[in-house]
Amino acid sequence: MLKVDTINTYYGSSHILQDVSLTVNQGEVVALLGRNGVGKTTTMRSIMGLTPPRSGEVYYCGHKINTLPPYRINRLGIGYVPEDRQVFPDLTVEENLLVAQRSRNSKKGEEWTREKVYELFPELAKMPNRLAGRMSGGEQQMLTIARTLVGNPDLLLLDEPSEGLAPKVVLNLLDVLKVIKKSISILLAEQNAVFALSLADRCYIMEKGKTVYEAAAEEIRENKDIQKKYLIF
């Protein structure tokens, strides 16, 4: 459903992504692994149209999306959960969800409504009127995911959801994502490979702006060399 075809992305004059290609199939969870600063976030941003690639193409369900503005890409069905959370701090939980709420025809009947999202995140349901800026890191992470869910995406770009969370919260998050993945394909960027591999079907490993390795998740789980070479466990 998503096909990233040899994209090159720059920040100003620094060349960050070099010929990155990857695919995500319907129903799949694909992990994008790699150390600090290898370009995982930039890949996500390139797909989302936030830092459009200078060359190469991105296709989503047959649409060429690399020249579209972010809002159009979102409306086609790609939801983005940025790293470092980026909730709207001056808005309440409820308002954060309202801003993002968007129903899509293809999903009639099984839409993520606010009620359903509150069911999935009972912590949020307890504080709909809390200002997002006043919440803990874990709660904010839940809110960012919830906020993207109510936009009813078919593909979720999840950028380092486990970053900076307490181990218990990470476990909680894992449960939530296992529910979500039943209905939504996911591209997951992570440094925390254990977390990612427990969720993913397939993996790409990135190194200095390039995808250097692609394999099924099990393969990487077993291959100690690869783990040592590219990942931090």
Binding site: M48, L50, P69, P70, N74, V99, G151
Partner: peptide, 11 residues
Amino acid sequence: VNREMVGALGV
């Protein structure tokens, strides 16, 4: 507070 995020959420 965050123009970019608003766009990424489909506004």
